[in-house]
């Protein structure tokens, strides 16, 4: 009787606490990997190889991790529009679901940096001023003080950060795409990375104080405006006054 009750209780408890979702999740994950593989074979394998082993034109994707896939595909850099000095940012051709499936497939080939998840609490707690200090010390050399971007050698460039989402900013830090150095968790921990992303978003989104920001490049567009509008306008006024001179 005791045994029976115990068995019944165990059964009920099992029924109550059984990790029912896991089987479904695993199935979903497997499905994502399967779908991702289909997408991969259709869209990526011609350059990166049927086994993602890389080739003459493209690097191996084994071990790059889901963060790299999400960064490259969600920023539209992959698939490449045309070979050039550097992949350009454009509108992504895959939906976020498809990108996640591709990421799952590449992730299944061997680990790597995972796509970061930023919670609202982390975002709210991130220290903007600290992010700014880290940005100026680590990023401004190439991306310019307020993320306007700047050229590197031979047609390569550090891109404008105006359109980069917080997730993409952190993915770039963790995976070091193209010419960009990699900033691992040893250099910038999670809180630091979120703070940098928050600073970049702030300087991109904050309304510009004092009028139009002239493309955020400072002295070069300022000089151009001073000459074209300032001097040009005043010379036009000189001509106007000269033309109205009474005989």
């Amino acid at each position: 009787m005791v045994l029976l009750v115990a068995l019944a209780a165990t059964g009920l408890l099992w029924a109550g606490f059984a990790p029912r979702g896991t089987a479904q999740d695993t199935a979903d994950a497997n499905e994502a990997v399967r779908q991702g593989r289909v997408l991969y074979l259709q869209g990526c394998s011609s350059c990166h190889g049927l086994q993602a082993q890389g080739g003459n034109q493209a690097p191996s994707l084994i071990g790059v991790g889901s963060a790299a896939v999400d960064f490259q595909v969600s920023t539209g850099r992959m698939p490449l529009a045309a070979p050039g000095a550097q992949a350009e940012r454009k509108d992504p051709i895959y939906s976020q679901t498809q990108i996640d499936q591709l990421a799952a497939y590449i992730d299944s080939l061997g680990g790597g940096p995972k796509k970061p998840v930023i919670t609202q609490t982390e975002w709210d707690d991130a220290d903007l001023a600290h992010g700014g200090e880290l940005y100026r010390a680590n990023c401004a050399q190439c991306h310019q003080a307020v993320g306007a971007g700047a050229p590197l050698t031979y047609g390569k460039y550090a891109p404008d950060l105006g359109k980069a989402t917080p997730t993409q900013i952190i993915e770039a830090m963790r995976t070091g795409p193209e010419s960009m150095p990699l900033f691992g968790p040893g250099q910038l921990d999670e809180a630091d990375a979120v703070a940098v992303a928050k600073y970049v978003r702030h300087v991109s989104e904050a309304p510009s104080a004092g009028g139009d920001d002239l493309g955020k490049y400072g002295p070069v567009p300022e000089g151009l405006l001073a000459w074209l509008v300032g001097i040009g306008g005043l010379l036009a006024v000189c001509l106007w006054i000269g033309a109205r001179q009474k005989v």
Partner: peptide, 27 residues
């Protein structure tokens, strides 16, 4: 009134260890 010039808050305080790309002098 209409065109921002030298937004010093964007450049941050001077620190000899830092430098921004596209640092230009006035024209």
């Amino acid at each position: 009134g209409l065109a921002q010039i030298n937004p010093i808050w964007g450049f941050g305080p001077y620190d000899p260890a830092n430098v921004s790309s596209a640092s230009q002098p006035d024209w």
